[in-house]
Write a protein that binds this DNA or RNA. Structure first.
Length: 647
RNA sequence: GCUGGCGUAGCUCAGUGGUAGAGCACUCCCUUGGUAAGGGAGAGGUCGACAGUUCAAUCCUGUCCGCCAGCACCA
C-alpha cells in the first residue's frame, strides 16, 4: 500500500503501483477528466505513472500555472512531429521549454525559413485536433539505438549514449510519432490547445559547442489561452518600443556607423547624460575615499605579456601598427588594471597606505566578435567606471563589504531596487594557491552575507585570477542585466611586481580588488534608456525643460525664462519656431523631453509658465520663480539631495 | 566567429535587367495658431563596397563590409 496525502490534508491508502489517473477516477470522473498531470511531493509527473511510495499528491488541471510548462513541452513535440511530417529526412535533436515558450533544434541540409511557419503551424493544428494520447514506454538502450539508427536519427543516437547508466530511457509516443524524452507530458496532445505561435528561426550549435555542427532552431511560444498569447505578443511589441537603439536615435543621444563598428558617436545630448553619470559616480567615489587617476591608452605590449592578458586574450586585443621604422608594438588597453598597478608601484608603498583605492573612467577597447555587437549593450570601445582597491589579505573582507554597500546604494539612486548577486567561485583553469582562493572566496561570502540580498552561486565561473561577485539588475519589464562586479585578484599585483612594505619590514604583495559599479557606462546608459523607456528621471535627462512659445509675441519672455532656468541649474532651451503649439508639443513629447514650459501672452503678462510633463496631458500654470524652484529641486541628483537634507 | 535574414533619401519602407518612388523629416513661402501633425512649393539617392555575367546591373553571380535574430564568446 501507498499513503497519499491530498492538498486538503486528507490521507488515504491505495494499492502500491496505482496510477495517478486511477486515483483521480476513484475520487471523481470529472476530476480525472480535467486533470492533465500530477505533482508528487511537488514534482510534476505523468498521470499514468504508477505510484510506488508514500507521497503528497496534487492533480494538475490544464489551467494550473504548473501546466504551462507541460503545454509548452508538448507543443515542442507537436512541432517536431509536424516538421518531420512535412520535411522528411529532418533529424530531431532536443526541444526544451524556455522562458515564455519552447524551441526544438533540427538538423536538415536545407535551412527552414519563416515562410515555412504557416504550413508547420497548420500541420501542428491537425496533430492537436487528432488528440492522440501521450503514452510512455521505457526502452532498453539497445532497442533505442537500433530504432534511431534505422531511422537515421544520428543525434538521438548520441543522446541515448549520453543518458547516464541507471537512468530510464523513456520514449513518449503521440500516435505514430515518438521522441526520446525525459517528460513528463500531459495526458493527450489535444491539451496543447491553440494558443501557440512559431516565432523565429536561428542557428544553434549541437550541444552548444561551436566546434559542433550548426542546427536549425525553431522558437515557438505557447500559452494556456489565446488572450495570454495576445498579451505576450503585446509585451514583445512594448519591449521593442523601449529598444535603446531606436530611442537613442529618437532622443538624439548617439549613433553608430559602419566605419566604427561597435563604437559610439555620442551626440551632445547623449554626452550630457554620460557626463551626468560620471559626475554622479565621481561624487560617490570621492565621498568613499577613492582617488581618481588616469592611465595611458597605449602601453607597450610587453606589459600585457607580463600581466598575462596577451596570452589569454590576444585575439580580443587591438594592437598598433604605426611606422615601418618602429617595430615596437603597443596595445590599446582592454583593461585599466595594469595601468593602476603601475601607479601603485610608482613610489614605495607602506602598509599604512592601504587600502589604496584608485579609480578611473577608463576607455577600453576589446575586439569583440562581430556577432556579439549589440547597440550600446555590447561594444568594442567602452568606458568603465573602474576602480582597484589595493589591500592586505586581512583587509579583503572589510573592503568587499564597503564596496558592496556602495554598489547597492548606487543602483537604488538609479531606480533599480531589485538587485540579485551572483557569486562565482574558482574555475577549473586558474592560477594561485588554493589556500589564497579559500581566503578570497570567504571574503566575498562575508560581503554577500552582510548585504542581506538574494544571491546565487555560479560554480566554477570565477575569473582565472580570483573569485567574483556580479550584480544583476532587474529592469521595469523584468529583464535582467549584469552590471557591477567585484573581483578579488590574487595574481596580477604579483605578476606585475607590485609590493608594499609590511609592518615587519618585508616586501609583501598586495591583493587587488577590481571593482566596477556601472560596469560599462555605455551599457549602463542603454539599460537606463530601456528601463525608463526613454522617460529618464529629470536629473538624468539631457534636455530637462523646453520653453515653447504659443506665438512670437512671447519670444522675448521665453528667452528670459530659459535664462532664468539656466541660472537655476536646469538644462533648458527655447523653441521659438513659427509652428503651432500642438506641433511643438508633439515633437518634443516624441523626443522624450520631460518638461514643457509653454508660454504665451498670458504667461508673459503674469510672469508665469504653463507646465506640461511628459506622459501627461495635464497642464498647470505656476509663477515662474516657484516653477523653477520646484524643477531645480527635482533635478537635483539623489546623492546631492541626501547631503543637502543631512546638512 | 557560426547559421539565417537584411542593406534603396535623415527616418520608415515600396520598386524594376533599360541609370528610381511614397510618407514623415529638411529648405523656402504663406500662416501668429493655447497643449501630440496648418497649407503650398522645393531640394535631396554612385540603390553598402569591389569584382564578374550582360549591349545594358540597384536588380543576376561572387567576395568583402555593416546591420538584425539566435548560437558561441564576454578579462
Amino acid at each position: 500500500m501507498v499513503a497519499l496525502t491530498f492538498p486538503d490534508g486528507a490521507r488515504r491508502d491505495y494499492p502500491n503501483g496505482i496510477t495517478g489517473l486511477e486515483v483521480a477516477k476513484k475520487i471523481s470522473p470529472s476530476l480525472a477528466k480535467r486533470t492533465v498531470a500530477m505533482a508528487l511531493d511537488g514534482v510534476l509527473a505523468d498521470l499514468s505513472d504508477p505510484i510506488e511510495r508514500d507521497a503528497s499528491i496534487e492533480f494538475v488541471a490544464r489551467d494550473d500555472p504548473r501546466a504551462l510548462e507541460l503545454i509548452r513541452h508538448d507543443c515542442a513535440h507537436v512541432m517536431a512531429e509536424a516538421v518531420q511530417t512535412l520535411f522528411p529526412g529532418t533529424q530531431v535533436t532536443i526541444g526544451p521549454v524556455i522562458e515564455n515558450g519552447f524551441y526544438y533544434d533540427f538538423f536538415r541540409n536545407q535551412p527552414f525559413t519563416p515562410e515555412d511557419f504557416p504550413a508547420i503551424e497548420k500541420k501542428m493544428r491537425e496533430i492537436i485536433t487528432r488528440d492522440r494520447p501521450f503514452t510512455k514506454e521505457v526502452w532498453s538502450r539497445e532497442q533505442a539505438k537500433k530504432v534511431f539508427r534505422d531511422r537515421g536519427e544520428n543525434f538521438k543516437l548520441e543522446l541515448v549514449d549520453a543518458i547516464p547508466p541507471g537512468e530510464e530511457l523513456k520514449i513518449y509516443k503521440q500516435g505514430d510519432w515518438f521522441d526520446l524524452c525525459r517528460g513528463p507530458h500531459m495526458t493527450s496532445v489535444g491539451k496543447v490547445g491553440s494558443a501557440f505561435k512559431l516565432m523565429k528561426i536561428a542557428g544553434a550549435y549541437w550541444r552548444g559547442d561551436s566546434n559542433n555542427p550548426m542546427l536549425t532552431r525553431i522558437y515557438g511560444t505557447a500559452w494556456a489561452a489565446q488572450d495570454e498569447l495576445d498579451q505576450y505578443i503585446h509585451r514583445l511589441e512594448e519591449a521593442e518600443k523601449r529598444d535603446h537603439r531606436r530611442l537613442g536615435r529618437e532622443m538624439d543621444l548617439f549613433h553608430f556607423q559602419e566605419e566604427a563598428p561597435g563604437a559610439v558617436f555620442w551626440h551632445a545630448k547623449g554626452w550630457t547624460l554620460f557626463e551626468a553619470l560620471i559626475a554622479y559616480m565621481r561624487r560617490r567615489q570621492q565621498e568613499t575615499g577613492y582617488l581618481e587617476v588616469n592611465t595611458p591608452q597605449l602601453m607597450d605590449s610587453a606589459l600585457w605579456v607580463a600581466s598575462g592578458h596577451m596570452e589569454k586574450y590576444r585575439e580580443m586585443m587591438f594592437l598598433t601598427e604605426s611606422r615601418e621604422d618602429d617595430e615596437r608594438v603597443f596595445t590599446i588597453k582592454p583593461m585599466n588594471c595594469p595601468g593602476h598597478v603601475q601607479i601603485f608601484k610608482n613610489g614605495l608603498k607602506s602598509y599604512r597606505d592601504l587600502p589604496l583605492k584608485l579609480a578611473e573612467f577608463g576607455k577600453v577597447h576589446r575586439f569583440e566578435p562581430s556577432g556579439a555587437l549589440h547597440g550600446l549593450m555590447r561594444v568594442r570601445a567602452f568606458t568603465q567606471d573602474d576602480a582597484h582597491v589595493f589591500v592586505t589579505e586581512d583587509q579583503i573582507a572589510a573592503e568587499c563589504i564597503l564596496i558592496n554597500d556602495l554598489i547597492l546604494s548606487i543602483y537604488m539612486d538609479f531606480g533599480f531596487d531589485d538587485v540579485r548577486i551572483k557569486f562565482s567561485d574558482r574555475p577549473q583553469k586558474r592560477i594561485g594557491e588554493d589556500a589564497v582562493w579559500d581566503k578570497a572566496e570567504a571574503a566575498l561570502m562575508s560581503a554577500l552575507k552582510a548585504s542581506g540580498r538574494p544571491w546565487t552561486l555560479n560554480a566554477g565561473e570565477g575569473a582565472f585570477y580570483g573569485p567574483k561577485l556580479e550584480y544583476v539588475l532587474r529592469d521595469a519589464i523584468g529583464r535582467e542585466w549584469q552590471c557591477g562586479t567585484v573581483q578579488v585578484d590574487l595574481n596580477l599585483p604579483g605578476r606585475l611586481g607590485a609590493f608594499h612594505i609590511a609592518p615587519s619590514g618585508e616586501k609583501v604583495m598586495p591583493v587587488m580588488i577590481h571593482q566596477a559599479n556601472f560596469g560599462s557606462l555605455e551599457r549602463f546608459i542603454g539599460i537606463l534608456i530601456e528601463h525608463y523607456a526613454g522617460h529618464l528621471p529629470l536629473w538624468l535627462s539631457p534636455a530637462q525643460a523646453l520653453v515653447c512659445t504659443i506665438t512670437s509675441d512671447a519670444d522675448a519672455y521665453a528667452s528670459e525664462v530659459v535664462a532664468a532656468a539656466k541660472r537655476a541649474g536646469i538644462r533648458a532651451e527655447a523653441d521659438l519656431r513659427n509652428e503651432k503649439i500642438s506641433y511643438k508639443v508633439r515633437e518634443h513629447s516624441l523626443a522624450k523631453i520631460p518638461v514643457l514650459l509653454v508660454v504665451g501672452k498670458k504667461e508673459a503678462a503674469e510672469r508665469a509658465v504653463s507646465i506640461r510633463r511628459l506622459g501627461s496631458e495635464q497642464q498647470s500654470v505656476m509663477p515662474l520663480d516657484a516653477a523653477l524652484r520646484a524643477l531645480a529641486a527635482e533635478a537635483t541628483p539623489p546623492d546631492l539631495k541626501r547631503t543637502r537634507e543631512a546638512a
